[in-house]
Amino acid sequence: MGTVVSIELADDLPEPRLRELIASTCAWLHEVDARFSTYREDSEVSRLRRREIDLPDCSDDLRLVLDRCAGLWRETDGYFDAYATGPLDPSGYVKGWSVEVASARLAAAGSTRHHLNAGGDIRMRGAAPGGGPWRVGIRHPWQADKLAWVLAVREGAVATSGTYERGAHVWNPRTGAPATGLRSVTVTGPDLAVADAYATAALAMGEPGLAWLAKRVADGYESAAVTEDGRAFTSPGLPVAP
C-alpha cells in the first residue's frame, strides 16, 4: 500500500501467541496489497482497470470496497471519488478499511489491546501498555518536529490527510485541480475506513469542509483542521489529551 505499518499488542498473552497474531495481521495486509495495489500489474484492481475481468467476477472484498466507495461518493457529494484522478483507484478507502478489518480480526483472535498504524491512519482497542488511553500525536503541518495536537484514544480510529508531506495528492473533483484551503485534516471516530475517507473528502472541499465535518459529529466523528493560512479548528468532542 506504499506505506509502513506498525503493530503494537499490549495483551497479556504468551509471546508465541503474540507473534502468531502479528504474523496473521501482516499476512492479511500483504493479501490486501496484492489485490488492491495500483502499482502491481497482476493485482485485481489493475486487471479490472484494464478490463481483463468484469466486476461480477471480482472478489467479494473488491466488490465490497467499490460499493462503499460509491456510498461515500454520494455521502460527500462527490468529493470522495475513487475515480478522482481518472482510472479507478480505491486506495483512499482501502488503507483504512484494511487496518479496520485487521483490528477486528485481532479482536476476534483474542487481542483486545492493540494499536495499528498505517502511515498515520491508526486503529486502537483497549488500554495502552500503561493502562491508560493510547496517545496519538498529530504532526504540526509546517514544523515536522512539533505537534499540533495530542489525542487520547482508548477505542477508535484516527486518520489524517494533509498536503505537508506528499504535496498536492488530493484533488478537488469540481475544479479538476489540487485541493486548496486546508493544510491538514484529522478525523477521529469508530471506523478507520470512514474516518480516513472523511478526512480526504474534507481536504478536497477546502474550507467548506469545516462545516461539512461539523455535521459528522452526530455520527461519532470528531475532527481537527488547519487552514493554509494557519488557523486551527476543532470539534467540541475531539479527544485531546489533558
Rank of each mutant, 00 (worst) to 15 (best):
C26E: 15
W97L: 07
A214L: 02
V226I: 12
A202Y: 00
S43I: 03
R166A: 08
A199T: 01
W212N: 10
C69S: 15
A201C: 13
A109V: 04
M1T: 04
L213V: 06
I138A: 00
V94H: 04
E155K: 03
W73E: 15
W142C: 03
L210M: 04
S184P: 00
E222Q: 13
E20M: 10
P236T: 12
P236H: 10
T186D: 00
W134P: 07
A118R: 09
C58R: 14
A128I: 02
A107Y: 14
L147G: 00
E52C: 11
T3H: 05
K215N: 08
S91L: 07
A224N: 00
A107T: 15
A197L: 03
E20T: 14
L182Q: 05
P178Y: 08
T175L: 12
G209W: 02
V158D: 00
I22T: 12
K95A: 13
R125N: 10
L72H: 14
A144M: 06
D191V: 13
E100W: 03
P16Y: 07
P133R: 03
E155S: 04
R63S: 01
P141S: 03
S59W: 06
P90M: 13
L29R: 10
G156S: 01
D12G: 14
R183K: 01
A225F: 09
T163S: 13
G130K: 09
E52M: 10
V240K: 03
S103Q: 08
R105Y: 02
R139L: 13
V158F: 02
V158R: 01
R49V: 14
L182S: 02
R139H: 12
H30V: 14
G92N: 08
A159R: 03
S24Q: 12
E207D: 04
D57V: 09
S235T: 15
E100L: 04
T112C: 04
Y198H: 10
G119N: 10
